[in-house]
């Protein structure tokens, strides 16, 4: 798990470069909440603290949730998210290895549903030392701040462009603060670099990222070919949302993912399909969290139906030969 944390560094660094230190403070705060909640619950469950805190899984959940939230989010928002992630999604199910749902995504989904205003406060690219850092500590965001901050993510802006506007008109109107699109693409590439490190270290297998990204690519390409004026381009889908981050860092969480290789392929493809469905026809601009949670639900079924053929098992062998 330490390697996963190390692999998030390129992504975090790039995000910090574009959105300021609010990213780092998010991550640190979330990791601290994570350790605190884990310790508290372990104490209540009368379990030894050391091995569980030392495995860095709570820190990782914090890093992943912190990176998903708008930079310099209010402290209580992060706290609520981590409470849902560590206490509810992880420890109440029995701790590491027993949680059916991805903890970071449970936290994220809860926040997205409960506090939509705060969760969509993605600023336009910022200097390294943003004003918003202060509001993280006070925990309140004033209305004018909301106005000045309220940059939308590219996917968000595109989704709400309105039916009357065609894609080319939309982009011509310069809907986003300058540099936004560029920033998101660089961040996606940085996550890809971190993900490649995980692949190279054999910490994750290629199955889930490959099947998730390729299913997204196929659907996005088909839609784009069908009507390029209304559907976003495949590149926008892959490079500006949480697709890359989700494919390498969220969906590959082994605890809540399918286990057999065939199961992983189906699981990843399912996430890709759901992301595209929700992005295109659902109510949210991005959907990695919901897609992952929905596929988490399918994991027991996937595991049941994708048991590989043991060496020497007869009936399947006959089928193969014929």
């Amino acid at each position: 798990m330490r390697w996963v944390i190390i692999a998030t560094l390129p992504g975090l660094a790039t995000m910090t470069f574009f959105f300021g230190l609010g990213v780092i403070s998010n991550v640190l705060l979330a990791a601290a909440f994570g350790l605190g909640f884990e310790a508290l619950i372990l104490r209540l469950r009368q379990r030894p603290l050391h091995p569980a805190l030392n495995d860095a899984s709570a820190v990782l959940t914090g890093v992943l949730l912190g990176a998903s939230l708008p930079p310099a989010s209010p402290w209580w928002l992060i706290g609520v998210g981590m409470l849902a992630a560590i206490v509810v999604a992880k420890q109440l199910y029995g701790g590491l290895g027993h949680n059916p749902f991805n903890p970071a995504m449970v936290g994220y989904a809860l926040l997205l549903v409960s506090f939509p205003t705060y969760m969509t406060l993605w600023s336009s690219p910022q200097p390294l030392w943003p004003d918003a850092l202060w509001s993280q500590i006070t925990g309140s965001v004033s209305l004018e701040q909301i106005d000045s901050l309220s940059g939308a993510t590219p996917l968000d802006a595109f989704k709400h462009k309105g039916d009357g506007l065609s894609a080319s008109q939309f982009w011509a109107s310069q809907p986003l603060p300058s540099g936004t699109l560029n920033a998101w693409q660089w961040i996606a590439i940085a996550w890809l670099a971190g993900g490649s490190l995980l692949l190279a270290k054999r910490i994750i297998s290629w199955h889930i990222p490959a099947s998730m990204l390729s299913s997204m690519l196929v659907i996005a390409t088909l839609l784009y070919l069908f009507d390029p004026s209304h559907f976003a381009s495949p590149l926008l889908h892959l490079l500006t949302g949480a697709a890359i981050f989700g494919a390498f860092f969220i969906a590959t969480d082994p605890v809540s993912a399918a286990t057999s290789q065939r199961g992983k392929l189906i699981y990843g493809a399912g996430i890709g399909v759901l992301v595209m469905l929700i992005r295109t026809w659902g109510g949210y601009p991005d959907a990695v969290a919901f897609a992952v949670l929905l596929m988490n639900l399918c994991v027991p079924l996937l595991d049941l139906y994708t048991i590989p053929r043991p060496a020497g098992a007869q009936p399947a062998a006959d089928k193969e030969r014929s």
């Binding site: 091995p51 495995d55 701790g95 590491l96 290895g97 027993h98 297998s205 082994p254 605890v255 993912a257 286990t259 057999s260 290789q261 992983k264 595991d303 048991i307 590989p308 053929r309 043991p310 060496a311 020497g312």
Partner: peptide
Amino acid sequence: PPESPCIRCGACEDVCPANLLPQQ
């Protein structure tokens, strides 16, 4: 080292010569 919980990483499945699912 002391045993920690299974995180279902599936490394065991990749190496199983009998093609079983060891973590299951």
